[in-house]
Amino acid sequence: MASAARPLLRGVVFDLDGTLTVPNLDFREMHERCGVPMKEDLLAAVRQMSPERQQSAWKVIEEMEGEGRRTLELAEGALELGRWLQRHGLPTAMVTRNSASTVRWLHDKLWGPAGIPAFHPALSRDDVEHDKPHPAALEAIAREWNHPLGPGLLMVGDSPSNDIGFGKAAGVSTALVDPRRRFREGDSSYGADVVIDSLLELPQLLWKTFDIPGPLGSTSAQTLAKKSEPLPETAACRAAVDGDIAALKAMAKEDLLAADSSGNTPLVWAADAGKADVVESLLAAGVEVNVKGYLGNTAVSRACRRGHDSVLRVLLSSGTGVDLDEPNEKMQSPLHFAAFKQKTEAVKLMLAAGASTTSLDRKGRTPAEDTSDPNIRELILQARASL
């Protein structure tokens, strides 16, 4: 149930150009070629032109957008934010003054390949009667989602007038993406509720500002408190913990693959116990390296959590397709574990292997934000800056 002080987050609506993607359109040139002064709303001006001038202006706009699509790239934190919202079961929509072709390009080339659901509804200038900042599109999205307009819906964009003004007109919460800090000086942010440098900052702010629904959210009745550690139950799991390689080699492969009631396989137990030689033997026998065990943790996660560097070296050098970033049931990545538990060598090994420095836990924290060790935080931030 939502708290009295914080609204329950119902869904997030995004702008496209300059918000989800790096801005790459020269709007000054676009205005000049269309014969519209910069101080005027381009789309509104074009719609009021004579048919002949309008046709010419639309041709310019479509041509420049088409060129922009070829170099379109996602903004920092866009994928991480998309995955975070997906894992929390929160719907996302889009309202953009770009064309429907650009929306399709984003879905087909950048969003879909990452395995994130398409924005729905995704409303371009070709789909609406009134362009932003008229609130009609947000009203349509609220109807589609069957949620009332209000602070539980969030509009995210990079334009104070077209995005923040749009959200304010509809009565929803607003977040301004302002990486170059153009609008924070002189109070030109149109009263945005949140102003951020990067989309990567938004999940943690959402966690602090809203009640987040779902089994992993802040409103969940599901207990996420610490649980007592399980004990190995099967003969293979016990042999893995004991380091009894001879016993394991005498067992059928199906026994080496089988999990006990905790969900742990012999490999996960061996990684948790710090038995590097057992891990190496099990991998040589062909067990699945990315299998999830207790609370959704993989062998890499357990090695990171315990700081078993020798195990981690075996896993990372095994050539078995280790997933460096597979999250557990609480959305913690292996690097989150290593950072939180202050396992410096494990952090270094994971960073050297290419682990994501921007993965987000359920509260929206990156690994650098999930450690109290300033040296580890600096290691992670340096690795992120070098990318």
Rank of each mutant, 00 (worst) to 15 (best):
R182M: 10
W58Y: 13
R377N: 11
S50V: 02
A2M: 08
G263M: 03
D325W: 05
D15W: 07
Y190V: 04
S124L: 03
L267F: 03
S50N: 14
V241C: 05
V279L: 00
V241S: 04
R70Y: 07
V13S: 05
G157S: 08
F166R: 01
L123T: 15
A44Y: 04
S50C: 08
A240H: 11
L16T: 03
V172T: 11
L267H: 04
L295E: 14
A352E: 15
Q204L: 06
A236K: 01
W207A: 09
A175D: 09
K168L: 07
N375Y: 10
L81N: 06
D370F: 03
P91E: 09
P232A: 05
E139G: 10
A383C: 09
E345A: 03
I141C: 00
I196C: 04
W269I: 10
Y190M: 07
A44R: 12
S356L: 01
L81M: 13
R377I: 11
V268P: 03
P113C: 05
S198W: 06
C34S: 09
R305N: 12
S318P: 12
K132Q: 07
A259C: 11
D187S: 13
T21S: 02
M38F: 13
A355I: 01
C34Q: 11
V300P: 01
V36I: 14
R181E: 14
S161P: 03
G364P: 07
L206E: 12
A273Q: 06
M155W: 02
E185A: 12
F337E: 07
D131S: 07
A4W: 02
L351H: 11
S220R: 08
D361W: 00
F166C: 03
V60R: 06
D15I: 12
L138T: 09
E52R: 08
N264T: 14
R238E: 13
G171H: 04
G35W: 01
V156C: 02
T174E: 02
V311T: 13
I376R: 05
